[in-house]
Structure formats: C-alpha cells, structure tokens
C-alpha cells in the first residue's frame, strides 16, 4: 500500500485522499460494523436498548450500497451522501449523530477533488463539533465523543495514531457514569460497561486506518 502518512508540508496543496479513498473507508466501515454488530448490541443491551449493532448494520449497509450504485466523485460528496443515508436509515440516536458527523465533515471538504490528511482531520473535527452541539455531550459523558475527540486530535499525526486514540478513548468509557441518552437513566449502574457509541466510533476510525493501509 502507498504510504499515505507522509507529512503534509502544505495543507493547501494537492491532497492525496480522493473520493475512492473515502468510499473505501465507508465500505470498510460497513464490513466492520457487520462483523461487530453482535458485540455492539451486547454492549448496548447492558446499558441501552440493545439495538446499536443492528441499527448501524442497517445504516452502513445502505450507505455501502448507495455508494456502489452512484459513486460520488469528490470526498466531500461521499461523506455527505453517507451522512444523509445514516440519518434516514439507522432509526436510533446514532443515526442523526453519525449522520451529522459525516454530513458536516463532507460540507467542510467542499468540492475538492482530493484532500490531505490534515484537511480530512480538520473536516472531521468540524463534524465532531456538530455532534457535540447536537447531542450536548462533552468529553467524559460516556458517549461517542470520548472516542471521536482524541481520534481527530491524533489524526494530525497519522491514521494509525487516530485508531489507537479512538480505541483507548472507547475503553476509557468503561468506568465512567453515563450523562447522556438512555444510559444516563441508569446512573451508577452504567459504570463498568463500555459505551456502545464509543465502541462503534472506534470501529469507524479503525476502518479509516484500514482504508489508508495502516
């Protein structure tokens, strides 16, 4: 695989990540969510309503099939289309949250034909900010934000660093007490369970690193 992790001396210069790369990310994410759906649902049955895995499987399957039918030709358009389909097909809170993440990131990328890793990181940071605004969650609330924030911070370094940061962030939700969503009704009983949204976020970031060959 090409080394996509070269430093980006000029962030405004020609990028390396094209629409094909973003489509590979979404395809890898769909495959990963499909493989891990049972684990996500098991995590969600501990502190949620036991539908996270099946909801995301439905959503990302739809995204992968749409991207295959009519492949958009810019990175921004790939993410915008993926986000739109997640909002309309997931059925749970993760639909509007992940949908907003990708739509907003897609909007931030504009109509560039290819983007640098740093530009993708900046766009995803805008997406994560929109997720935080939508759900009102801050780091430490035991949500997807706990995996996504460290991941976009580390994406400036490398795809592999982002994957590690997301995985660590997801694992670190286990001792936390949930302050958002259905799990927050459980209070102290949410402690000791990994947050399913943080776990699926780690899968999505790992799929990004996979698409980059890292």
């Amino acid at each position: 695989m090409p080394d996509l992790d070269l430093p980006d001396p000029d962030p405004s210069g020609p990028g390396l990540l094209d629409a094909g790369f973003l489509r590979r990310w979404m395809t890898a994410a769909a495959a990963s969510v499909d493989r891990e759906a049972d684990r996500l649902t098991a995590l969600d049955s501990a502190i949620g309503d036991a539908d996270h895995g099946s909801n995301l499987r439905r959503g990302f399957t739809a995204v992968a099939s749409e991207l295959e039918k009519e492949p958009p030709d810019t990175p921004g358009a790939v993410l915008a289309l993926a986000g739109r389909h997640l909002i309309s097909t997931v059925g749970g809170a993760s639909g509007p949250l992940y949908g907003t993440l990708l739509r907003r990131a897609g909007k931030a990328l504009g109509d560039a034909a290819a983007v640098s890793r740093q530009e993708l990181a900046d766009a995803l940071r805008a997406g994560v900010d929109a997720v935080r605004q939508l759900g009102g969650a801050a780091p430490g609330d035991k949500t997807m934000v706990d995996a996504l924030v460290p991941a976009v911070d580390a994406l400036g370094t490398s795809f592999a660093a982002a994957r590690s940061a997301a995985e660590e962030g997801a694992l670190a939700t286990t001792p936390l007490r949930a302050r958002k969503g259905r799990a927050s009704y459980l209070g102290e009983r949410s402690v000791g369970h990994q947050d399913p949204g943080a776990a699926s976020s780690a899968l999505l970031v790992a799929a990004l690193a996979e698409a980059a060959g890292e």
Partner: peptide, 15 residues
Amino acid sequence: DLGSAVLTVKALLAE
C-alpha cells in the same frame, strides 16, 4: 419525545 426523536429532528433542521 426522547433521544433519537429529538436528535433526528434537530439534525434535519440543521442540515
């Protein structure tokens, strides 16, 4: 009413 109902409406309005 709750959770995803609120978030979905907000996401649709925001976009």
